[in-house]
Amino acid sequence: MAFTAADVKNLREMTGVGMMDCKKALTASEGDIEKAVEWLREKGMAASAKKAGRIAAEGMSYATVVDGVGVMVEVNAETDFVAKNEKFVEFVKGVAATVAKQNPADLDALMECKYEGTDLTVTQQQQEMVLVIGENIKVRRFARYADGVSVPYVHAGGKIGVLVNLSVEGGIDATEIGKDVAMQVAALNPRFWDKSQVTQDILDEEKKIMMVQMENDPKMASKPEQVREKIVMGKLNKFYAENCLLQQEFVKDNTTSVEKYMASASKALGGSVTFKDAVRFETGEGIEKKEENFAAEIASLVK
């Protein structure tokens, strides 16, 4: 019985086992999913397979620089308690080192990479961690900057991670500038890095909303359309200041913007720093968390 790529994906989601092992299991079981799960359990993956279906929405977002390469990873666990476990933290750091040194193309490729310092793949090392820690653990995503100067920032023990990538000239140390910008990103989570990224359709939608708001305001509705247009343009500048990182008010000095702070701080150091890109991971964002009802769970046990 033949199997498809969708079957491999399905088996991987069911068990948390790596893609290559899922293919082997389906081949050995002639495409039968249930037999493939049994095959994986017989090969010593039972514990991780049983836990793989449990929701992992806690964990750690971790940013670092390894030999000049900036890396950000998010690894999930089931509980916040495990996210503080020393072995879990070391596993996260090992995943980041693997990303830095092996430059995987995507998450699937990362999971098949040799976990740094071992002969195991990342998938196999992840399974080992499941067995040791006793919770479902899952590498979720990563980002990597090979060029420029990267500055990492980890907030609240990994609740939020930010990696800022800069272009630095003049031989200056831009670490403090990068960290300040990263903290700004962590705190305010801007929709855009720069106003140049705001497309015309977004501006048109914002303008439309503002015009409707004024039409619904008796004081504004009576003003000539030209006046309302000017008011809207002023509000759009405020939109940039609220939604675009470089135009935002700098949180450590509300008298200046982020881009002006970067320019003045780098000039004072004798060089120049230009913002290139950044990535912000908030641990568990977008994952639907299971609501636990412990009273109902206990009641069900004593029936």
Rank of each mutant, 00 (worst) to 15 (best):
M111A: 01
E135V: 05
I133H: 00
E135S: 04
H155I: 12
S150Y: 06
G134W: 00
D108T: 11
R140P: 00
I133F: 05
Y145S: 00
L110A: 06
I160Q: 02
Y153D: 05
M111N: 12
Q126R: 15
Y115A: 09
E135H: 10
A143C: 06
V139S: 00
D147N: 15
E112T: 13
Q127N: 14
Q124T: 04
Q124I: 05
L131R: 11
D147C: 10
Q127E: 14
G158S: 07
M111Y: 07
L107R: 07
Q126T: 13
E135G: 05
I160N: 00
K138M: 12
D108L: 13
H155R: 09
A156R: 11
E116R: 11
K114Y: 03
L107N: 10
G161H: 10
M129W: 05
M111I: 07
V149S: 10
K138S: 15
N136L: 08
E135W: 11
A146D: 02
T123N: 12
K114H: 00
V139L: 10
K159C: 11
E135A: 08
Y153V: 04
G134C: 09
G158I: 04
A156E: 12
E116I: 15
G117N: 05
I137Y: 03
A156I: 07
T123R: 12
Q124G: 03
R141H: 01
R141I: 04
K138N: 11
V122F: 02
R144P: 05
T118P: 08
